[in-house]
Every structure is written in structure tokens, then in C-alpha cells.
């Protein structure tokens, strides 16, 4: 079985700040990490490899620095890593990105068929959750989003059964392989690779594919040109002027809590208190 995991190197959003004057995101000095959601995808692919054998290929479209992220995936146990990198990809939105990635995965398939494609649920810098579905559509793969568990794969029937978290419950879904899975967070925990994997990752001759190597001829479909998204305006939401107030609970006494709460509400909004008294009397 061959799984391809799409990852993205993102700025650590916990450390990003917005410039107070220009309102733009200040990326300078913010450490780059692997999009945390993608790690759940990678670990799931590695677990399938543990269960059923096969290989795991990690792929990313990004700047040369994304090499660090790929090597890290290799150190977790991925077998191969491909960096799709070309100036022509700069400025890509989700449409152009899914086009480029599906082209690159198409190239991967020329060497070895791809049974499963994994992505994270979404990225923490874009939060669109569009790239995974975009790739599935272009490659004509079945699409399973927000998967929380891979229950089974039937290689004879070429079927996969998964659990998918949905509003108000869990869906048990079965579909045909090949398919693309976007993995939900919190579903597994990334392993601590062993020493052999560390050495392999450090020495791995990374494959870097430019536009041509990724099999893309039409430059109008990639980078800024291939990106219809327009960012109209960027603004920082106003911080709340009032701080939240912590209310201490004594001895788990609900009555006490209710009285305290009401007192706080009434001092802030005397009108509400007046209304209630009026109603009661």
C-alpha cells in the first residue's frame, strides 16, 4: 500500500502578531512548524504502514526552507519526501495549490500507484480546509473529510471503512480505494522515531521538483496567476476593552455561585434587576 501525505510548513500561529500600525501579519522571526493537523495525517499513514506494510511518501509545496519540515517527517518514519518548489508557485491560493499538488502526486503515481492521500483537516495559517478536497476532485479520488479513525481496509474489495466526526455524532463510512482522507486532530499521537530513522532523515537525498518536474505545463494555473482569491482588506479585530472576570467557586455550592453571579450581573446592569423585581412583584 502506498500513502501520500501532504504537509505544509506554517508559521507558528501561537507566536504571530499583527503589526499595530499596518495591521499586517508579522512573519519575521516567527518559527516555522509543520501544520499541526498534518501530523495527525502523517501518524495515521504511518500506523497503516505498521498494520499493513507499504510505503509513505510525504510531499509539500513550499519554499526551500520547507526542507526542514520534510526531514522531520522522514525522522518520524516516512519513506520518501518530495519538495515541490518553484518561484512560479509563489502567491498560490488554495485553487492553485491543489492544482500543483495534484499534478505532483500525478507524477508520483507514474512510479508507484497511490492508494491513499492524506491531508490535515486544515492549515492553521489559512484555515480554509480546501486543498484536500481540491486534490481529491482533480485526481478523481473519493473524499473523506474530518476522519477520526480508520477502521479497516479491505484490500481484496479495495474498500476502506472510517469513522468520521460529524455534527451530533460519528458516521461510519465505507468507500472505494483510492481515496483522499483529511484527518481530524486529536485522533492519534505522533511517535518518537528511533535512531535509525533519525540518521536516515538527516542523510536522505531530498527530491526537489520544480514546475516542470512536477509535470505542470500551464503556468496560468499556478502561483498568483492561477489564484482567483482576492484579499480585499486585512484588519485586526479590536481587542475587548473589558477583561473577563474569574469567579471563585466555594465548596462547589451552586446556590452560592448563583447568588454571586446574579449580584455581579445586577451591579453591572441595574435595569435587569429592576425588570426582574417588577415582574416578581
Amino acid at each position: 500500500m502506498h500513502s501520500v501525505v501532504c504537509i505544509k510548513q506554517v508559521p507558528d500561529s501561537a507566536q504571530i502578531r499583527v503589526h499595530p500600525v499596518t495591521n499586517t501579519i508579522m512573519r519575521q522571526g516567527v518559527p516555522a512548524i509543520i501544520n499541526p493537523y498534518d501530523l495527525f495525517a502523517l501518524e495515521e499513514a504511518l500506523r497503516l504502514k505498521d498494520r499493513f506494510g507499504g510505503t509513505v511518501t510525504v510531499i509539500t509545496m513550499g519554499p526551500p526552507q520547507a526542507e526542514v519540515a520534510l526531514r522531520k517527517c522522514l525522522s518520524f518514519g516516512a519513506d520518501h519526501a518530495i519538495l515541490v518548489s518553484d518561484r512560479a508557485f509563489a502567491g498560490a491560493d488554495t485553487l492553485a495549490t491543489s492544482f500543483a499538488l495534484s499534478a505532483a502526486i500525478g507524477k508520483v503515481r507514474e512510479d508507484q500507484p497511490v492508494d491513499l492521500i492524506f491531508t490535515g483537516k486544515q492549515t492553521i495559517d489559512g484555515d480554509t480546509a480546501q486543498v484536500g478536497p481540491g486534490i481529491a476532485k482533480r485526481l478523481d479520488y473519493q473524499l473523506l473529510t474530518y476522519v477520526s479513525k480508520i477502521v479497516d481496509i479491505d484490500f481484496g474489495k479495495k474498500e476502506i471503512t472510517v469513522e468520521r466526526r460529524a455534527e451530533g455524532g460519528v458516521q461510519l463510512l465505507k468507500t472505494a480505494v483510492p481515496c483522499l482522507i483529511t484527518m481530524l486532530e486529536g485522533t492519534n499521537e505522533m511517535r518518537f522515531g528511533d535512531m535509525a530513522d533519525m540518521f536516515r532523515a538527516a542523510r536522505y537525498p531530498l527530491k526537489v521538483w520544480d514546475r516542470v518536474a512536477a509535470g505542470i505545463e500551464d503556468v496560468a494555473k499556478i502561483g498568483l496567476k492561477g489564484s482567483p482569491t482576492v484579499v480585499g482588506k486585512v484588519f485586526a479585530p479590536k481587542p475587548r476593552s473589558q477583561r473577563a472576570e474569574m469567579i471563585e467557586v466555594h465548596d462547589n455550592d451552586p446556590q452560592d455561585l448563583v447568588v454571586t453571579l446574579l449580584a455581579k450581573v445586577f451591579t453591572r446592569h441595574p435595569k435587569i434587576e429592576a425588570e426582574i423585581i417588577k415582574c416578581a412583584s
Binding site: S75, F192, G193, D194, M195, M198, F199, A202, R203
Partner: peptide
Amino acid sequence: LVLCETTVTNLLLDGKRVIGVATDRKGG
């Protein structure tokens, strides 16, 4: 060659001579 996220837990000794390191990774 650089390995990160790896802690050296002990020095490997042959008598008084240091001959290597042990780490927190399997096969380390």
C-alpha cells in the same frame, strides 16, 4: 551531521575512556 530532538542520556565508557554516547532514542 546534526540530529535534533535527541537527548544524550549517558556517555559510553570503556574503563575510563569515553567511546560514545547513549541517547533517548531506540537503537540510540
